[in-house]
Nucleic acid binder design. Structure first.
Lengths: 123, 123
DNA sequence: GCCTTTCCTGGCCACCCGGCCAGTTTCGCA
DNA sequence: TGCGAAACTGGCCGGGTGGCCAGGAAAGGC
């Protein structure tokens, strides 16, 4: 493991905004004990800044839709979700339909992926 | 939006390892032009370091399985994936079956969620 | 009161999905 | 030369999924 307390901490950058990335790289380059990762190098930590424009419209989901969505992300079928929530399969389908609509998804897998991307759910 | 070029860059920390978090906070605290975010404050970027122990068993997927998995994460149906890769639906099902097996998933949605959790794919 | 939203339920149906069986080719490795 | 792994294809079928139709009940805003 060779966890040397005096070793440099290697950081990698994942920043959409070029200007911000440049400023950060300049600032961090002059810090003793820190080093930016070479391309492909394994880093101890990553500095992340996603472009907020990639998720402009935020979606309002009802509580029930969030319930269904969470169970979908766990891989639950409509039948299993219905049992979990104590409602009928038809009602689950109804909520799933609303989710596909609101999340602009083509299917439940796409819906979960979209929701995760927008931070609506945590995988 | 007052995007002042001379403003401090606010960073937040999301680091599982307390020791690493401490060292980074100390180092970054002395850098002019940088500031660590107050609790709840909106940060320009986030420093992330997840505990690698949270995903011990790593899975070996073939290249073709990765192809199929990526298209699954985009919400593609078996038919669409088949067209994309220029293979038959049966072959797609074959790879999907392998993926469900290797990822210990009950369905394609579960498979994508598991893969995303383990960092096999990026959403 | 009325009206909107949310939540809930039912039937119907085309299509998709996943699991089972079977087989072929191609490649690298022993 | 044989042998396994990977990739590919087919048929079959039970069950799941998603879209459409229809409706009812409860809560809150006007």
């Amino acid at each position: 493991m060779s966890e040397d307390k005096t070793a440099e901490i290697v950081l990698s950058l994942e920043i959409d905004d070029p200007a911000l990335a440049d400023r950060l790289a300049t600032l961090l380059g002059n810090v003793a004990g820190l080093r930016l990762a070479a391309p492909g190098e394994q880093a101890a930590a990553t500095i992340v800044a996603r472009d907020p424009r990639s998720m402009p419209g935020d979606i309002t989901l009802t509580q029930r839709e969030l319930d269904v969505l969470a169970l979908m992300a766990e891989g639950g079928s409509n039948k299993m979700i219905a049992r979990q929530l104590g409602i009928s399969v038809h009602t689950v389908k109804f909520h799933v339909g609303s989710l596909l609509d609101k999340l602009d998804a083509t299917g439940r897998t796409d819906a979960v992926a979209h929701a995760a991307r927008r931070g609506v759910i945590e995988l």
